[in-house]
Design a protein around this nucleic acid. Structure first.
Ligand SMILES: [Mn+2]
Ligand SMILES: [Mn+2]
Ligand SMILES: [Zn+2]
Ligand SMILES: [Zn+2]
Lengths: 121, 121
DNA sequence: CTAGTAATAGGAATAATTACTGTTTATTTT
DNA sequence: AAAATAAACAGTAATTATTCCTATTACTAG
């Protein structure tokens, strides 16, 4: 993977926020620093950055979001405001018991817990 | 919700398979019984059936899939063939500890475990 | 039967994402 | 350092999934 100014910017933007941004949001941010960038470049690089392990892609309903935090963690999704909140759940036990019971080799666990966050009490 | 022939067909198709079909697949099936049906009708009714609790909508990456099984359960997703396999995980403990720790009221848990199913050993 | 309302078909519109093409640019080779 | 090579880019078209709109059809209550 060759160096690219655009990719560095994209990486920086993803790493700058905790909000699990969409491609579109990232596009808007990167644009202010590099106005000629195209959305295709955003998507292409987000995919590359994911493949190289610099960021993670997560799915929120039917849109992709990007996460600087590549450590294994999960999300609480508020049904009111849509926020995704990071959460840590040990999935080692799960992985083991699933290998045994289902003969299925788990390599990644995607968990989203839907509900209401404390802003809506 | 008034009776509709089309909706009954759609419900029947979803209930006829364990494969967590997409709207498109359902469309193809329903079409053979009711060739004039439109994709809009499929989506509208899938949404209604979900709202009324006859089926569940689940997200597989960025496409919606539909599940006749409305009981709380989760899925193993094979990264090789894309199959979704039903799995039961008790999420009561999880829900409780999250209420305590995050002040977040969980109403639904979406879990997808990505990996390889036993077809690929 | 007739009015009112719910549902439909068909197609247009939108949103997210990917693919294509000619041009630019980083890196390698001379 | 200049030329050659190949990766990356911008711009745009195409695709895919989904929703929205409109005129038409079909139940249902009066
Ligand atoms: Mn996260
Ligand atoms: Mn299922
Ligand atoms: Zn919230
Ligand atoms: Zn498989």
């Amino acid at each position: 993977m060759r160096f690219s100014h655009q990719r560095e910017l994209i990486k920086k933007v993803v790493h700058s926020t905790n909000s699990h941004p969409t491609a579109d949001w990232i596009y808007a941010q990167v644009r202010s620093a590099s106005p000629k960038i195209s959305l295709g470049t955003i998507y292409r690089n987000l995919k590359q950055l994911t493949e190289e392990g610099f960021i993670r892609t997560i799915y929120d309903g039917n849109v992709a979001r990007y996460d600087w935090n590549i450590n294994s963690h999960h999300h609480l999704k508020c049904m009111e405001c849509g926020d995704l909140i990071d959460i840590q759940l040990s999935n080692e036990d799960m992985t083991k018991s699933i290998r045994k019971e289902f003969d299925f080799e788990v390599s990644d666990v995607e968990i989203t817990l839907l509900g209401k966050c404390n802003k809506h009490n």
